[in-house]
């Protein structure tokens, strides 16, 4: 069973690895952007929900 799972993951490596890399890159970009603009105090009140 474990062997089969590993083989499956190996066969579909690019299929599961690509979305994971995309999500991680998006997170990293957002973190970098927020650090770059962290001292921006000229913003009005925004609301994430209401």
């Amino acid at each position: 069973m474990i062997k089969k799972t590993f083989k499956f993951l190996k066969d579909y490596k690019k299929w599961w690895l690509t979305p994971m890399i995309i999500v991680i890159i998006v997170f990293l970009i957002l973190i970098v952007l927020s650090i770059m603009f962290s001292k921006n105090s000229q913003m009005p009140f925004y609301y994430a929900l209401f």
Binding site: L30, L33, S34, S38, A48
Partner: peptide
């Protein structure tokens, strides 16, 4: 989803840090 998702809150916070205009213009 919005009220239960910490990812949404995290994303909103990071995106809102990107300047979209001055508060004077906004108001």
């Amino acid at each position: 989803f919005i009220k239960n998702s910490y990812i949404y809150s995290f994303f909103f916070d990071k995106l809102s840090s990107i300047p979209r205009g001055h508060y004077v213009d906004f108001y």
